[in-house]
Amino acid sequence: MTGVALQCRMSVAAYLVLFAFGQAHAAGCLFAAQGEGHVAAVIDARSFRLDDGREIRLAGIEPAGTDKAKGAAALAAVIGGRDVTLHGDDDTPDRYGRQTAFVFAKGTETSVQSELLRRGEALFAADVADRDCAGTLAAAEGSAVQAKIGIWSAPTAIKNTESPGDILAGIGRFTVAEGKVLSVRQAGSVTYLNFGRNWTQDFAATISRRMIPAFEAAGLSPKSLENRRIRVRGFVSSRGGPRIEVLRVGQIEILDGK
């Protein structure tokens, strides 16, 4: 992990949210109330069951690491046996019957998601459309990165794009990688941010044509990322070399000061 990477400078998060701590609002994820309840059991790193039987899945974050027991213990340390309130735009259960929500332990103003991110026990998923909420979560993660706590205490927490094999080892998992974009090329309806010269083996981030208007609306063209040092987050797939598909502008952070 480089010194530049730890500075959390200008970032292209959801709608160009700044990762600077003072920019985020404390209650940025306080959406409409979706109910409340008592935590009866923690299921995994971001899911728990209320005493009325409802299963809740934490929105806006991804598990940090592959140790499921450790992830569940981290969540239990924050909300185990506590009363909580649920907030969000939609309380419709997903296809697995889980209600996705932002969760607050009773008597607190900080979401469970922010607390896990602050402790380095979760990763910001960059899938939050609300600007204030995205800024809150990004700032919480940024504080853990700077403090090198939790997952960020390991030098390999952020993958180096010059080591595509390390990224490929995390296929199917949510991963954060950083490096310099050596070239930007379009092939059909896909734009490739290439981090190496060997396009069949090196790491690349891909942006579909349908995403280009969102980048332009954010004042950022993919071509402008050429020769920039960036951090990209998302699920790793393999199409020749390791790939992360960019589905949202917030998955990319610009790390250099250009």
Rank of each mutant, 00 (worst) to 15 (best):
M1D: 11
M1E: 14
T2A: 15
L6Y: 15
C8V: 14
C8Q: 15
R9P: 13
R9Q: 15
M10W: 11
S11V: 13
Y15E: 13
L18C: 07
Q23Y: 12
F31P: 04
F31N: 03
A33Y: 07
Q34H: 09
G35I: 04
E36R: 12
D44V: 03
R46F: 08
R46A: 08
L50P: 00
L50N: 00
D51Q: 09
D51W: 09
R54V: 01
R57K: 12
L58R: 01
I61C: 08
G65I: 04
D67N: 15
A73F: 08
A77D: 14
G80M: 10
V84W: 00
H87R: 11
D90M: 04
D90W: 05
T92K: 11
T100C: 06
G107H: 05
E109T: 13
Q113R: 06
L116R: 02
R119V: 02
D130G: 04
R131H: 12
D132P: 01
G135L: 06
T136Q: 12
L137D: 01
L137H: 01
A139T: 10
E141G: 04
S143A: 12
V145L: 14
A147W: 04
T156Y: 03
I158T: 07
K159T: 02
T161Y: 00
E162W: 05
S163L: 10
G165R: 08
A169F: 11
I171H: 04
V176G: 03
N194L: 11
R197D: 11
I207W: 01
I212W: 09
F215A: 05
G219Y: 09
L225T: 10
L225M: 10
E226G: 12
R228W: 12
S238G: 05
G240V: 11
R243D: 10
L247T: 15
Q251W: 08
E253V: 06
D256A: 13
K258F: 13
